[in-house]
């Protein structure tokens, strides 16, 4: 697993390198846009972490050149520019995700993992999701735990769907919020926790094994598919 980090701030890039290496990734560093673009075109990376404000060639130009050259490597933009308009601009240029600096490392690691995994199983299209004895019928909009049907609100359905689609992965609160509500900001409260707690109450039935676990200080994880 090889990741390219294009970041001009030494402290941040060193920190990213160390943190990513600890997670078992190989890391290449570039401290300006030109070198970054060169490396990205030369090698096949699993993921590129791209700063927006870079010397020589700015992040968005690197990104658009890369996409024009036909490289579909997932790109996660890291930027201090935090307005919605900037985020939209970044995603429109071909970015796969956008994280505002300063970010929590746990959030970054979660998003990296999701981007890399997405690349792997994007071909897997199915009308049914299943985790242990929890089944979701995407066409009929129905959820069953074993044989018992579970009644869910539309937003709860979306929440559960996202968690089931990413079973085995840790999902952060902000990722859940973005996936279910599709607005890009951090509500900064425990409101997502309250939603997950309600969902859990509905899904975790007596006599069935627990499926949804809380990863303290980070987010939630649905148990792996068997």
């Amino acid at each position: 697993m090889r990741i390219l980090v294009v970041e001009d701030n030494d402290t941040t890039s060193q920190y990213l390198q160390k943190a990513l290496q600890e997670q078992g990734y190989e890391v290449d560093l570039a401290d300006n846009g030109q070198d970054g673009l060169f490396l990205a075109l030369e090698h096949d990376y699993q993921l590129i972490l791209l700063d927006r404000m870079l010397p020589k060639l700015d992040g968005l130009s690197v990104l658009s050149t890369l996409r024009n050259a036909g490289k579909q490597t997932p790109v996660l933009i890291l930027s201090a520019l935090d307005s919605v308009a900037e985020r939209v601009k970044g995603l429109r240029e071909g970015g796969d995700d956008y994280l505002v600096k300063p970010f929590a490392l746990s959030e970054l690691l979660i998003r990296i993992e999701i981007l890399i995994k997405r690349k792997g199983n994007s071909s897997e299209l199915s009308n049914k999701l299943q985790v242990a004895d929890l089944q979701m019928d995407l066409l009929a909009h129905k959820v069953y735990r074993g044989l018992i049907e579970i009644q869910l609100q539309p937003k709860e359905f979306k929440l559960l769907r996202y968690l089931m689609e990413h079973a085995g992965q840790v999902i952060s609160r902000s990722l859940l919020f973005e996936a279910v509500w599709d607005y890009h900001f951090d509500p900064q409260t425990n409101v997502i926790d309250v939603h997950v707690a309600r969902l859990r109450k509905k899904v975790e039935l007596d006599g069935h094994a627990p499926l949804l676990e809380t990863v303290r200080g980070v987010g939630y994880r649905m148990v792996e598919k068997q």
């Binding site: 402290t11 941040t12 920190y15 160390k18 943190a19 201090a80 600096k101 300063p102």
Partner: peptide, 13 residues
């Protein structure tokens, strides 16, 4: 924000 960001990184580390 930048030094505080670095501080955050160090605490996380």
């Amino acid at each position: 924000r930048t030094p505080l960001g670095h501080l955050r990184q160090q605490i996380e580390q």
